[in-house]
Design a protein around this nucleic acid. Sequence first.
RNA 1: CGGGGUGUAGCGUAGCUCGGUUAUCGCGCCACGUUUGGGACGUGGAGGUCGCAGGUUCGAAUCCUGCCACCCCGACCA
Length: 496
Amino acid sequence: MSKGLTKRSEDYSAWYNELVKKADLAEHSPIKGCMIIKPYGYSIWEKMQAELDRMFKATGHSNAYFPIFIPKSYLSKEAKHVEGFAKECAVVTHYRLKNAEDGSGVIVDPDAKLDEELIVRPTSETVIWNTYKSWIQSYRDLPILLNQWANVVRWEMRTRLFLRTTEFLWQEGHTAHATRQEAIQETEQMLDVYADFAERCMALPVIKGIKTPNERFAGAEETYCIEALMQDGKALQAGTSHFLGQNFAQAFDVKFATKEGGLEYVWGTSWGVSTRLMGALIMAHSDDNGLVLPPKLAPIQVVIVPIYRTDEELERVSQKVQEIKKDLEALNISVKYDDRDTYKPGFKFADWELKGVPVRLALGARDLENNSIEVVRRDIERGEEGAKQIVSIDEVAGMVPALLDEIQTNIYQKALQYRRDNITTANSYEDFKRILDEKGGFVSAHWDGTPETEDKIKEETKATIRCIPLGNELEDGTCIYSGKPSTQRVLFARAY
RNA sequence: CGGGGUGUAGCGUAGCUCGGUUAUCGCGCCACGUUUGGGACGUGGAGGUCGCAGGUUCGAAUCCUGCCACCCCGACCA
């Protein structure tokens, strides 16, 4: 491992790529656009999964699993859906290989062509609604509240580790309801779940909003989203929740008998977050020394580094460390004792800093004499006031839970302050462009509500409407681009 | 798919214009010793189809042709 990261101020994108690799989160695979998620990175994802899964269950959902392959004909049943995804689908055409006649290796066996080609799922609405058709006959079969943890494939042209990969991991919730109202409530409820998760666990402040028709999910009637702001001033869509209306029910002919004896189409929702959240987590908090993880998602919350010269000293230090470790574990804190004798303390400090461990304890022979221990918090940058403190060994375990809470709160507050400072109001197209170029972040501006204006602005500035914030205040104004009347401001940004 | 760029050890690179013995350097790796409170040092060592395939030549990392891969910029996107 080479020393140091590119500084964020020098090249943000290089900083991100280096950090992902050096912190052992993920690396490129031999397949273009696909990634290998390494154990340390995957364990963060597992912590996200565990909490989200708990929250889904707490809101009445169950997990299920649907196939990775979707018959080609299914995808085309919902017109907008196929239009949205057709351009990025991987297709399975054959089911067998054979040795080439000329001995040059294996080739696709032309005799093994599939009658109907299969799509590798880019999302599962179609196969799931096809199934719901057989599961739903009566209002008594509703609602159906399912989630699945899965991988999906979207053949993107340009990829970046975690942020946009050809294959990615996610969860997709798919629910079916008897009424429009209930489906909308579900959509909004899951958006709240996502926002709560982002803010409480990831320490990532998000704006809840509604997408414009241009940015809406292919096949949805309304797309809700949570939008976050990264440290380079670009926005990132962190999660989406879709009100599908009756679109998929109509496409797959899913009807139910009402209590009153009528026959109606079922109302649907779908919602998802992906490994992209890893990208958000990295870009929201980390600094030039490496990853900064919120304690609630850190695979290792406390690392202990021993400092010693002789085996005898190591023995004495280790004994004390084991006691502290036991005390911390009794408080449900995950602790790593880094007693590798192949690295020096300085290296370990830098290494765990790079990996974002929230709290580091260092214990040496000198400490044993003074009954003291060094406590270092990762959320305050190395060398700055408050990053390091010396406390009594007897008190250290007891103070860690509060310290972890404080770190969690602190990084959330820092991110929140940054976002507050980077939502800027623009009242003219000139201001709008200047803010985007000089400052970045969200720009709050009036828009005439037409896709044409949105497209033009995107074309000229690369900024898109991230969302119309929920609970947005109505305010009369004029569109910054067309000068036509507008009733509210929307949030624009350049985005990932 | 358009425009630009790069392929040399695990990683980062020098050499290429103007062909010439054993392909340079740093990091990392291995061994031994000294070290250990912020990324240790010394000595020794291992590691290469110079992206691939042809061609020119006594001789190719270097020149020529073709191909491939990756990166950046655009069109597309969770």
